[in-house]
């Protein structure tokens, strides 16, 4: 039996999910669509962004939404030199934990900067909104350094 040719072919497997957001995440995403950022107050008084449905300590349902600022500070970060196709930016950027003003916990998002050297823990950043907001986390296009 002759050795057959090597046969190779690209194919894509797609899962076209639609998720229900639930009332709390739905409120957060609705806020993003309106270019506002909402957190939620936990039983210990902390403001958590993005909001959680249940208290992390007591597991009680939470419902006290708190609007937080559109500026904050970098708590930690990681520079991505070579973005991949699925990354939110096509040039070098940083993933960062950002504590927004009025929030007590940081949330992850991306930060645009000209160079890695421009970034620092404690640096101040502000939201850059997407041209069109649709109720997705990507309505925040990225964060940018303040005063550059």
């Amino acid at each position: 039996m002759a050795q057959p040719d090597v046969l190779s072919q690209a194919f894509e497997l797609g899962f076209t999910y639609t998720r229900s957001t639930g009332p709390v995440v739905g409120r957060f995403l609705t806020g993003l669509r309106d270019r506002r950022i909402f957190g939620i107050r936990a039983s210990d008084g902390r403001v958590i962004v993005p909001p959680m449905e249940y208290d992390p300590a007591t597991a009680e349902a939470l419902d006290e939404f708190v609007e937080v600022g559109q500026q904050g500070e970098i708590v930690s970060w990681c520079w991505v030199k070579q973005p991949r196709a699925s990354h939110p930016m096509d040039t070098a950027f940083a993933w960062a934990m950002i504590r927004l003003d009025g929030a007590d916990v940081p949330m992850i998002h991306c930060v645009t900067a000209a160079a890695e050297e421009d970034l620092a823990t404690g640096a101040r950043v502000q939201v850059v909104w997407a041209a069109e907001t649709r109720g997705y986390i990507t309505d925040i296009r990225c964060f940018e350094l303040i005063g550059e």
Binding site: S8, Q9, A10, F11, E12, L13, G14, F15, T16, Y17, T18, R19, S20, T21, G26, R27, L29, T30, R33, G135, Y136
Partner: peptide
């Protein structure tokens, strides 16, 4: 209010 979001996952293979 937003109640649903589309979150597709695409896996690219070379078979």
């Amino acid at each position: 209010a937003v109640t649903r979001i589309e979150t597709p996952v695409y896996l690219q293979y070379n078979f």
